[in-house]
């Protein structure tokens, strides 16, 4: 097998005296849908921040298709094909939905700053294609009617979907979803699961997903890694995770019984 799409090679992230993530090792193959779970404060989002270059890991490396990306700037990593959504929604409040998505399409631009300043025909063409691409992403996420609304005018569930549309517009190979189902009602979660499955197929994505909603995690993930206090305590199929005593002890406890 060739190099995995994403390889977290014994990553440690330390903030002062606190080890948020400790010796975390994870490989994700191309096309996989992997879940990352764990109790609050387990270091899940820190893992995302390390992968996307918000932090450089204290120890270990992050490899994308065998190439080291840890230590690179966040925007460079995004251009390598890793985009994300945020746990606490981070849309651009003063931009329209279409523009929110178009910001991410930015990395596919061909026209430079000067052709933009003077609005040359080449620039106009480039801009039209960026807009078309962004509009397409809105359509895919069912937000086609909201292209010209301000991002903040959307309902909460729609804002979550707009974040996904925005992340998709970057044309990622690896999509990181940070609690996409947080705050959604059961029906919306149901819909989200269908949506994730669909975009994955349509854009042949690899997805790493942080989620607390066990129905979502167990329902769509093929493989799950469990973090507790920054340490990976288990990894395996949903069924294995459900049965793992360490996981039940750390976190799943009640849920596993009722699920």
């Amino acid at each position: 097998m060739s190099a995995p799409l994403l390889h977290l090679d014994h990553v440690t992230m330390q903030f002062g005296g606190l080890k948020a993530v400790s010796d975390f090792d994870l490989q994700i193959g191309s096309g996989e849908l992997v879940g990352l779970i764990g109790p609050n404060g387990a270091g899940k989002t820190t893992v995302f921040n390390v992968i996307t270059g918000v932090y450089a890991p204290t120890q270990g490396r992050v490899l994308l298709e065998g190439r080291q990306v840890s230590g690179m700037k966040a925007n460079r990593i995004a251009c390598c094909g890793v985009t994300r959504t945020f746990q606490n929604i981070r849309l651009f409040p003063r931009l329209t939905c279409l523009d929110n998505v178009a910001v991410a399409a930015h990395q596919h631009r061909k026209a430079g700053l000067f052709s933009a300043l003077f609005a040359t025909p080449a620039f106009e063409k480039d801009e039209a294609s960026l807009r078309a691409r962004s509009r397409e992403m809105l359509e895919v996420l069912g937000l086609g009617n909201h292209a010209d609304s301000m991002a903040t005018e959307l309902a909460y569930g729609q804002q979550r979907r707009l974040e996904i549309a925005r992340a998709l517009a970057g044309g990622p190979k690896l999509l990181l979803l940070d609690e996409p189902a947080a705050g959604l009602n059961p029906q919306e979660s149901e819909e989200l699961m269908r949506l994730i499955t669909e975009i994955r197929r349509r854009f042949s994505l690899t997805i790493l997903l942080i989620e607390h909603d066990m129905k979502v995690v167990m329902g769509i993930c093929e493989r799950i890694a469990v973090l507790d206090y920054g340490i990976k305590i288990a990894e395996g199929s949903p069924a294995e995770i459900r049965a793992n005593p360490k996981v039940i002890e750390a976190y799943l406890g009640e849920e596993a019984v009722h699920a």
């Binding site: 996307t52 918000v54 700037k73 966040a74 925007n75 995004a78 985009t83 994300r84 945020f86 981070r90 849309l91 651009f92 409040p93 003063r94 931009l95 523009d99 178009a102 910001v103 991410a104 399409a105 930015h106 990395q107 631009r109 026209a111 700053l113 933009a116 300043l117 609005a119 620039f123 480039d126 801009e127 960026l130 925005r166 992340a167 970057g170």
Partner: peptide, 20 residues
Amino acid sequence: STHGRALFAIRDDEIAAEAL
């Protein structure tokens, strides 16, 4: 232009802009 949007994105949320 897309460059202008990049500037607006920085104004609205620098971390999100960088991540995109």
